[in-house]
Design a protein around this nucleic acid. Structure first.
Lengths: 133, 133
DNA sequence: TTAAATGCAAAAAATTTGCAGACGT
DNA sequence: ACGTCTGCAAATTTTTTGCATTTAA
């Protein structure tokens, strides 16, 4: 828990039991939806309100403390900000995993082909995970 | 219009004025949200119901006739299925454009690094478009 | 003619808001 | 003690559903 307390403090986010629960779930789970956060925390912490989850998610998004992950066919998921990475998504079971891929060349190709000032890229790879094959 | 009639027919989708309006909007607009579809069509075709738009979007998704595009910070958008492509998104004005990028190497790297059977990839490049710079 | 599509209204689901009381610093 | 956070209830917003009627083929 100490770890998450520090994490929140270092981002100037006031430490509450609700936030600790949200952050530790995100850290352990990797990617998690509002519904999953609410259901899992509620089980051990029945007074939790869904509104609190939404408010905190939104505040954390604005603080750039977490990131929203939108995947076709799935609810929005949230993850802690960490080193840049891509996502692998299993089309059978819906599991989402991080994968480090080099997206530099892609971004450079995009810069070449367009007149955009490139800031970042999002890559999602869809397939079938080992367990589902 | 003939073009869109053929397009629907060739996908075994019954041709209705509502569907023609949706499909031609998508084709001309590139990427468009449910709200935008509804508002734009409704202007010239006031009897249109939002439920009809949803039902058709969902049916077309199931038929694999259109694709859903989820972009962080934006409503879901829909586009006709066409050759594989990536998207460039302007962080200032929200505009979305197609761009053809070679995602082969990325997919192969993902296949190497994981034990997934790769099926497809989604790439979104975020930046600032020429007009907004 | 007949199955499927539409529009409406209602229902359900998802998200936001306002506010009084509780809590973290 | 102060300002912020929480939980609740209500309000919005978004999406889905059921059904009577219309429509495409």
């Amino acid at each position: 828990m100490e770890k998450y307390i520090e994490l929140l403090k270092s981002n100037q986010i006031k430490v509450t039991p609700q936030r600790l629960a949200i952050v530790s779930l995100m850290d352990m789970h990797g990617h998690i939806s509002v519904r999953e956060i609410f259901d899992k925390i509620k089980a051990n912490f029945p007074s939790l309100s869904l509104a609190t989850v939404y408010k905190n998610i939104n505040a954390m998004l604005e603080n750039n403390f977490i990131k929203e992950l939108k995947i076709v066919g799935q609810d929005a998921k949230y993850e802690l900000i960490k080193e840049a990475h891509s996502h692998m998504i299993c089309q059978k079971c819906g599991k989402v995993e991080d994968i480090i891929l080099d997206t530099q060349k892609l971004a450079m190709a995009a810069a070449d082909k367009s007149a955009y000032q490139i800031e970042e890229s999002t890559v999602q790879i869809f397939g079938v995970c080992p367990a589902c094959q």
